[in-house]
Design a protein around this nucleic acid. Sequence first.
DNA 1: ACCGTAACGGACGCACCCGTCCGTTTGGCT
DNA 2: AGCCAAACGGACGGGTGCGTCCGTTACGGT
Lengths: 214, 214
Amino acid sequence: MTARLPHTVRSDARDNQARILDAARAVFGEEGLSAPMREVARHAGVGPATLYRHFPTKRALIVETFAEQRRACHAAVRDALADSDPWHGFTCLIERICELHANSRGFADAFMTAFPEAMDFTADRERTLRAVAELARRAQKTGQLRPSFVIDDLMLMLMAHRGVQDAPRTARLTASRRFAAYVIEAFRAVPETGAPAPLPPAPHLQLAHSPITS
Amino acid sequence: MTARLPHTVRSDARDNQARILDAARAVFGEEGLSAPMREVARHAGVGPATLYRHFPTKRALIVETFAEQRRACHAAVRDALADSDPWHGFTCLIERICELHANSRGFADAFMTAFPEAMDFTADRERTLRAVAELARRAQKTGQLRPSFVIDDLMLMLMAHRGVQDAPRTARLTASRRFAAYVIEAFRAVPETGAPAPLPPAPHLQLAHSPITS
DNA sequence: ACCGTAACGGACGCACCCGTCCGTTTGGCT
DNA sequence: AGCCAAACGGACGGGTGCGTCCGTTACGGT
């Protein structure tokens, strides 16, 4: 009696799982997290039940779908902290995060949306914020980063950047890059002008909870 | 036989219409256009049917609801064009538009969302854009506005500003003001630095169509 | 005070989306 | 080749939101 080894995964199952993840990356990346599960299933060429067997809930699918983008985010943070020029690291980090968000609307949604349980993305966000806070301190010391910059300003700009993603597909990447460039210009310290410090930002810019009810 | 004059409007109907508009301003202003019609009805203390008799569709209600904000927008444009200092007019216009959008999430949605038929808001937006284009030419001549500024940059920033509105209710206004201040800093011409011109923006930043299907 | 008609609102139909059930198919081991 | 369990997917239930129908209410003119 050969005990059934649960380690053997049927090939079609494995295949479908891969196709589902590809489809999810495509669909969520293009339409954001509001895209229906059915469309992911259709795009993957499977039934809804199959999708739900592999990923018990929409949130679970989302978390798995963007694992790679999460790693890319970590790498960006690591590189930025390792950069010998704080301001250069700071601006590169902003550009890389914006590009990550622009390349996948779904990842931008997941990253910026506080959904209560799946703290994977929340952890990434916190990590990024802490890294930027550290970078900011250094870049302010070199005089290249505006002294009035506070960490909440990054949240502010990332939320704003999410609004840019509502641009039509063809314009998104260009718009995102232009926006990132303007953000960097806004954060750069002005030479000598007594530029009036902008109003204080929202203290502790906490996000609203996820629209993903399910 | 006194022919029924359809000009006489029953007092309760008139009352309800006013209450519905108030409710719509409150609900849509707070939750955006995604708020259900039922909630507007509940907030107004009427049944759904009553609401739909006064405004045959959600879009019709929206258009009527934000008539005042539209007027305020026109006034801001007019004042900006009349300002003798183009840069001052330009920055004030940005601040006023942002404040209008921050004070009513629904108006921001309606203003920025291209919904195909109700071109009321589209017209406002075009008008605003043309005004800014004119202001921009003047402000660039005075050297205060960055020469690389193009009109699509305003659309870009207004789209971004809409993302800021996803902040929690208490932080929205502060965040909006901070954002507007940063935008102005970003648009301001730098004294002498050969600041690398940001990448070209999305040509003809046309909006995606409205999520208000109904 | 009475009555006709306009206005009201609860209940309904329709469409969409999330997640589940169960009868059917199929991979892979013997 | 045959078998069995694992995987599949069409169909279903539950929930929500838009817009409509029709029996009931109440305004306001006589």
